[in-house]
């Protein structure tokens, strides 16, 4: 059986979410092709060809694919679907947007956000905001799957797959209007090795930035926030870590003034090492923290800054 991975990329290179999805695909089959959809994305396809274990890279281009419009991706993938037993893509906002659309057109049940491949037809995925894991077996001949990237190791480099062009479709009823991407010199939340995350205890947007930014810069970390901090307007919405925001699993996660609501824990509890700084000794965040410091962030963060040197 052959598997198609629809790549996630930033317009110039594949993101490491693609490498992680290739790992999940290789657990299903040794015949893994990667489809790059975009506009002017030849360099991305050449990059994807270097991922170890990839058999072939397909490149489809159109204006609609440049903006990853779901209708364009669906119409591009459908003619290719006949050659594959499974179609995988990372569970990013793009993947979540187009994968179910493809599944419906193929009349198959989509399998969302898998964290483990048990066998070619059996997968594990979180439900109820990560409070339970379900193991499901698919009876469909063809499978459409989104993969939670943080649950898989990244496939290595060293491949040299051929790149082939395929027809790219457009989205006739949808037009792109604008986009507003947050620019930052800090690492991306999804890819960062260290994340410092702030909660509602910080009290204001000014305080959030004044406390979190110097610490993040000192550690070379990305900045995250709890939903409470985002809802209160202290941090922009793309900072949000949690079931309703981003699911992250960095080497080190430092939670500052975050109480640890269920939905926040669902987004970070797979981090390698968790540090919690909170003045409430009973905050639920301490139940998942490897190292807890019961202290007011106002004194703890400056002390942490000086201890880091």
């Amino acid at each position: 059986m052959a598997v198609l991975v629809i790549a996630d990329h930033d317009g110039s290179a594949v993101r490491d979410t693609t490498h992680k999805t290739v790992t999940a695909a290789l657990a299903l089959s040794s015949e893994v092709d990667v489809l790059v959809v975009g506009e002017g994305a030849k360099a991305v396809a050449d990059g994807a060809a270097k991922i170890a274990g990839v058999r072939k890279v397909l490149l489809a281009e159109s204006a609609g694919l440049g903006k990853v419009l779901a209708e364009a991706v669906e119409a591009t993938v459908l003619p290719l679907a006949g050659g594959y037993d499974a179609i995988l893509t990372p569970a990013t906002t793009d993947g979540k947007n187009f994968a179910p659309r493809i599944a419906a057109k193929l009349d198959v049940a989509p399998i969302s956000d898998i964290v483990e491949v048990v066998s070619a037809d059996t997968f594990v995925r979180p439900i109820y905001a990560g409070n339970a894991l379900e193991t499901i077996q698919s009876g469909d001949a063809k499978k459409v799957i989104t993969v939670r990237p943080t649950a898989f190791a990244a496939a290595g480099e060293g491949g040299s797959a051929p790149v082939e062009s395929v027809a790219g479709a457009d989205a006739p009823k949808t037009t792109f209007v604008a986009e507003e991407m947050v620019k930052s010199d800090r690492p991306e939340l999804g890819a960062a090795k260290i994340i410092v995350s702030g909660g509602r205890a910080l009290g204001s947007a000014e305080e959030f930035h004044a406390v979190m930014e110097p610490l993040a810069d000192k550690l070379g970390a990305a900045i995250g926030a709890s939903r409470a901090a985002v809802d209160a307007g202290y941090a922009p919405n793309d900072y949000q870590v949690g079931q309703t925001g981003k699911v992250v699993a960095p080497m080190l996660y430092i939670a500052i003034g975050i109480s640890g609501a269920i939905q926040h824990l669902a987004g970070m509890k797979d981090s390698k090492t968790i540090v919690a700084i909170n003045k409430d000794p009973d905050a639920p965040i301490f139940q998942v923290a490897d190292f807890g410091l019961v202290a007011d962030y106002k004194t703890a963060v400056p002390e942490l800054m000086s201890a880091l040197g």
């Binding site: 198959v108 049940a109 399998i111 059996t122 979180p126 439900i127 990560g130 409070n131 339970a132 894991l133 379900e134 193991t135 499901i136 077996q137 698919s138 009876g139 469909d140 509890k269 968790i274 301490f286 139940q287 998942v288 923290a289 490897d290 190292f291 807890g292």
Partner: peptide, 16 residues
């Protein structure tokens, strides 16, 4: 189309 084989609790983190 899908058969639920089992539903389990996620692994707990060891106390820090």
């Amino acid at each position: 189309r899908l058969k639920v084989l089992k539903v389990t609790e996620p692994p707990k983190r060891a106390a820090g």
